[in-house]
């Protein structure tokens, strides 16, 4: 457990996020101000979150050298399975943090300017974004772990493209209007866990014998 936390921490420190937290805070402030005085900034924020999430998710695999940081990981007392668990932990905690940030900013904006507020909708959107990027992780990570970023950029962009297309389709068809809320959410959650679990298993297997 402790080793997984160590690995997650490594992934976090190798992205540049930890050096630009203050920029994020500033951006939040600006967004609140904009949200209060202008109209809906929700989509702006979603765009920003989506952009950050998709690039940050790949950070552990991208580096100035081949294979990102695997040259270093091979020399550390971390088992390959620990590395995989750590990557997943990093991805989910990253998305959760960004989504939480979005929800908080949206909520604060809503408090200051109640006319635009719709908390359940905020929560719904936040959950949806989390769901979307958890799915992205589940699809991308086994491919990145098997081939590395240099050899699988198509995997990454193709996934995002594909999922966005599916999202568009779902939004168009809008089946959610017909379905009961809580059972759908529960099923969605279970489905997500199953997909993530399967993805993790594939990744563990794939990375065990990966050549660095």
């Amino acid at each position: 457990m402790r080793d997984i936390a160590t690995m997650m921490r490594l992934d976090w420190t190798t992205t540049k996020l930890h050096t630009i937290w203050w920029i994020l805070g500033l951006a939040d402030l600006v967004l609140v101000v904009l949200g209060v005085f202008l109209a809906n900034t929700r989509f702006l924020m979603l765009g920003a979150v989506a952009g950050m999430a998709s690039s940050a998710l790949m950070m552990p695999f991208v580096g100035s050298q081949q294979h990102g940081l695997e040259g270093m990981l091979a020399l550390l007392p971390l088992r390959r399975r620990t590395v995989v668990w750590g990557h997943y932990g990093y991805a989910l905690s990253l998305v959760a943090a960004l989504v939480l940030n979005f929800a908080v900013v949206d909520g604060v904006t809503g408090l200051i300017r109640p006319t635009e507020a719709n908390f359940s909708r905020t929560l719904g959107v936040a959950a949806g974004v989390f769901f979307f990027f958890a799915l992205t992780t589940a699809i991308e990570y086994p491919m990145l772990l098997k081939w590395g970023f240099e050899r699988a950029p198509f995997a990454v962009y193709g996934t995002l493209f594909g999922l966005c297309a599916v999202l568009g389709l779902v939004a168009y068809l809008d089946p959610f209007a017909q379905l009961p809320v809580w059972p759908t959410v529960a099923m969605g959650l279970v489905g997500l866990l199953v997909v993530l679990g399967g993805s993790l298993m594939i990744s563990l297997h794939v990375y065990e014998t990966r050549e660095i």
């Binding site: 420190t13 190798t14 540049k16 050096t19 580096g63 100035s64 050298q65 081949q66 940081l69 040259g71 270093m72 020399l75 550390l76 007392p77 971390l78 088992r79 390959r80 660095i212």
Partner: peptide, 27 residues
């Protein structure tokens, strides 16, 4: 797997060895 866990006892340096881009000596 056993060798990977015992990396405390191994010090290595290859041409392909890297460290994170943004780290300084202190990091």
């Amino acid at each position: 797997d056993a060798r990977q866990q015992a990396r405390d006892d191994l010090g290595a340096m290859l041409d392909s060895t890297t460290l994170p881009d943004v780290w300084t000596v202190k990091d």
